[in-house]
Design a protein around this nucleic acid. Structure first.
Length: 150
DNA sequence: TACAACTCCGCTG
DNA sequence: CAGCGGAGTTGTA
């Protein structure tokens, strides 16, 4: 049974999906129908803690669905702390991938905020993309909020 | 096979 | 020196 709930934040509505006690998807937007669960309520709390700068990371039981490489990259992204950024190229080099591919993997990230893909920017300091999730505007907002000066 | 949320390098002004 | 254009790269759909 899949449960889902929407949470209102200063960045807009965020929706989380849970199955078998684990969060498997987080995205922007509001859901019409919600089926809440203790796990999701808990996630709601973590999310607010995270937003109010108490935590570096969003704590949650989550499930990563993807292949080996995607997981590797996502784990790498999770190491980036609030206020820090990394370039696509940096990560690509580390794992012997092409930078473009790193970008693609980021866009494949379904666990928004849990996996902070918005902290990955271009080598020259410009933002890169974020279109598949919430738009570059949102990326900028998130980074600014986390203390990264663009 | 074509595409992708990039980067590097060389050329022009 | 800054700005622009093209090639290179490699896992996915």
């Amino acid at each position: 049974m899949i449960k889902k709930m929407s949470i209102k934040t200063k960045f807009g509505w965020i929706s989380a999906y849970e199955n078998n006690g684990k969060i498997f998807k987080v995205k922007f937007g509001k859901l019409k129908k919600q089926i809440k669960s203790p796990i999701l309520e808990n996630f709601n709390k973590s999310l607010h803690k995270f937003i109010h700068k108490k935590n570096h990371f969003l704590k949650a039981r989550y499930k990563l669905s993807g292949n080996q490489i995607q997981k590797k990259i996502w784990l790498e992204l999770k190491k980036i702390k609030k206020g820090q950024t990394k370039s696509y190229g940096e990560i690509a080099k580390k794992y012997n991938l092409s930078p473009r591919h790193v970008g693609k993997i980021c866009s494949q990230n379904k666990l928004l905020l849990i996996i902070p893909c918005h902290r990955v920017i271009r080598a020259d300091g410009s933002l890169g993309g974020f279109s598949s999730i919430g738009g570059v505007k949102l990326k900028k907002k998130l980074l600014k909020f986390e203390g990264v000066f663009i």
